[in-house]
């Protein structure tokens, strides 16, 4: 069973056709969902606005008030990339609420996979500010709702850009394991391998920066070699995926070289991280090529539901194997340094 919470943003938060983060993305995504021909095996949920209580676990009240007021007054640009319009507050709240609806439905069914096709996207939004096309951090709102109930949450972020907002929000949270594969160097300039988490969550941020041209085999290897040991140790109750498709080779905003077939394999790998069926939710993040979005959504969801879908061949042979070893090594060194610092501080105390 596929749970689709949304869509959100098909008819709101309209920055125009010249902005890559546009309404048409949702139409492409939903075409990809329809390509699966799921008939009775799909359930659509209406995305209601996330309650303030849930938003406030992640975002500062001051920011929420300012963003709502900014939008109500007509909005404008938050930065050269990011716009907020008169209806963007409502769209952002519904985008943030969609994940909560998806989780509730999965809990009710005890089975299935959930997909949250929403915009504006979320993973760049931090506690106190939006940026990088993002206003509210959708995946973080859901993760925080789960940890508030004592659940342990793994967030896998395979968007081409590092999810700096999500990382910052859960930097020192021992109940959230954040794992990101992303192109480096690239916006937003964060996500080095030695960024490993705060003092209460050392090692629970896993960054695997990858060079332009990286192919699917390398991204999978990155998750298996660098991230899998930490995931096994962490033992998550839920897996939330920041599911950006801008790592596709046709995407205009990145230079990774993935195909739609690669996303299918990444989805299967993410599914294997979940403790059981009914504990996997995929949140749309980036993805700015209409055709790549449609095919990647179809193959990703098709792989999880075991529905045969026409897909591009998986890719291999690109650069990045050295980057994986560097990430592994950088991570170990950073953790050793932090442990040493902690040991010395303890000795002095």
């Amino acid at each position: 069973m596929l749970i689709v919470a949304g869509p959100v943003g098909a008819h709101s938060h309209d920055g125009g056709q010249n902005h890559p983060e546009q309404q048409g993305r949702i139409f492409s995504v939903m075409d990809g969902v329809r390509d699966l021909d799921l008939d009775d095996e799909i359930r659509y949920l209406t995305a209601h606005p996330a309650p303030l209580e849930d938003l406030s676990r992640v975002h500062a009240t001051k920011y929420l008030n300012e963003l709502e007021s900014f939008c109500r007054q007509g909005g404008g640009n938050l930065d050269p990339d990011t716009f907020a319009l008169s209806d963007s507050w409502d769209a952002a709240c519904r985008a943030a609420g969609a994940g909560l609806e998806a989780i509730a439905e999965l809990e009710r069914l005890g089975d299935g996979v959930a997909f949250v096709p929403v915009r504006p996207p979320g993973h760049h939004a931090g506690a106190e500010r939006g940026m990088g096309f993002c206003l509210l951090n959708n995946v973080a709102v859901s993760a925080a709702a789960l940890t508030a109930r004592g659940q342990r949450v793994l967030i896998v972020d395979w968007d081409v850009h590092h999810g700096n907002g999500t990382q910052a929000i859960f930097w020192d949270d021992p109940d959230v394991l954040y794992i990101s594969t992303h192109q480096w160097p690239l916006f937003p300039g964060t996500g080095r391998a030695d960024e490993i988490g705060g003092p209460n969550a050392i090692g629970l941020t896993v960054n695997i920066p990858l060079p332009p041209g990286t192919t699917g085999d390398i991204v999978r290897m990155a998750l298996e070699v660098v991230a899998q040991p930490t995931i096994d140790q962490f033992n998550p109750d839920w897996v939330l995926v920041s599911c950006g498709f801008d790592g596709h080779r046709d995407d205009p905003l990145g230079e990774l070289a993935l195909s739609s077939g690669d996303f299918a394999q990444l989805a299967q790998l993410a599914s294997s991280f979940a403790p059981r069926s009914g504990r996997l939710v995929l949140f749309l993040e980036g993805g700015y090529s209409a055709t790549a979005l449609r095919s990647s959504v179809a193959t990703t969801l098709g792989a999880l539901l075991e529905v045969p879908v026409e897909q591009e061949a998986t890719t291999f042979g690109g650069p990045g194997s050295e980057a994986i070893e560097a990430a592994r090594r950088g991570r170990v060194q950073a953790m050793d340094a932090l442990r040493m610092k902690s040991h010395l501080a303890g000795g002095q105390g």
Binding site: G132, N164, P188, G189
Partner: peptide, 12 residues
């Protein structure tokens, strides 16, 4: 030339 939004780039 620093990857990021203006605020983050300057704070860095």
């Amino acid at each position: 030339a620093v990857d990021g939004d203006p605020l983050s780039a300057l704070l860095r």
